[in-house]
């Protein structure tokens, strides 16, 4: 909000800021109060509630079979979804940024699709395809393959939701880097794979790390799509966000917020690393402002 105040009078060179000190102070105060009320306060509440009954109660929330199962499932899901999206994201952005081919715009649109679809719909499409009333559900049932209401469904839904993170970050970056360096490498006799490994990959590493960070945070925190395909079987198909909801609905507020604080902690660590990367390597992460 304070930025708006300084931006407005650009066409009056005499004074950059026309508003009086009082107005400026007021605008800044409004912005800070808003941030405190809608961001800091709820985040603080999570930790306050989690520790409402002390350390022992907090730790007890994690010394429980269902909590262990939820943590394990969340880690398994992220451990499959993130590398998958990493490989796919690099391949897609490499193809899109460095080559010209028919249907390129269509591919870009498809990669963006998960961002524009509600997570509930993302979950439902898998129920409609793999559910026992769905397209290939009866076939799966005959061959005793369980996709939805089991780990494969949860992983699929998570991959779908986190699909665009890596590609969206890398495409503009690689586009701006252009193909000159790779061409030079090839002219000097490097093989395609060698050029990719020693030229392309090092150029995008910070952007890649940055996007993997965000992708991982979303993979561990996804609620809507996973909720639809999970079936909520305790100790089997509940991820951490679903476990938080269950505990809350069982009036187990301390445990619920304790588990939520784990997710909030993950978010804070992600935010910290993200800021560190942005501060240190802004030019290597995003396309704009890059000089090379």
């Amino acid at each position: 909000m304070s930025e708006i105040a300084t931006d407005l009078p650009r066409h009056q060179p005499a004074s950059v800021v026309t508003e009086g000190g009082l107005v400026r102070g007021l605008l800044i105060a409004v912005a800070i109060v808003f941030l405190a009320l809608f961001l800091v306060l709820p985040l603080a509440t999570v930790f306050v509630q989690a520790f409402a009954k002390g350390w022992d109660a907090y730790l007890a929330a994690f010394h429980e079979a269902d909590a262990h199962a939820a943590i394990r499932l969340t880690l398994i899901t992220a451990a499959i979804a993130v590398p998958f999206n990493l490989v796919f994201g690099i391949m897609a952005s490499w193809a899109i940024a460095k080559f010209e081919f028919a249907g390129k715009n269509l591919l870009v649109t498809l990669i963006d699709l998960p961002f524009s679809v509600s997570p509930v719909v993302s979950g439902l499409i898998y129920v409609l395809v793999f559910g026992s009333q769905g397209l290939i559900g009866p076939w799966l049932l005959e061959h005793d393959i369980q996709i939805i209401f089991a780990i494969p469904g949860i992983v699929l839904a998570t991959i779908f939701v986190t699909f665009p993170f890596v590609a969206r970050q890398l495409i503009p970056l690689m586009q701006e880097q252009g193909t000159a360096e790779e061409e030079a490498a090839l002219t000097l006799g490097a093989s395609g794979w060698h050029a990719f490994r020693t030229v392309t990959l090092p150029n995008i590493r910070w952007g890649l790390l940055y996007s993997v960070l965000l992708c991982n945070a979303r993979a561990m925190g996804e609620f809507g799509a996973v909720s639809v395909v999970s079936g909520h079987i305790r100790g089997l198909t509940n991820t951490l966000p679903l476990h938080v909801e269950i505990l809350y609905n069982e009036y187990n507020f301390v445990a619920s917020f304790a588990v939520a604080s784990l997710l909030a902690g993950l978010a804070l660590v992600t935010l910290g690393l993200k800021s560190l990367l942005e501060w240190r390597y802004a030019g290597d992460i995003a396309a704009s402002g890059r000089r090379h």
Binding site: L75, A79, L213, N216, L262
Partner: peptide, 13 residues
Amino acid sequence: AAALLLAGPVFLA
């Protein structure tokens, strides 16, 4: 950064 990224899940797991 890479060490942190790897250590986080391992620490949890």
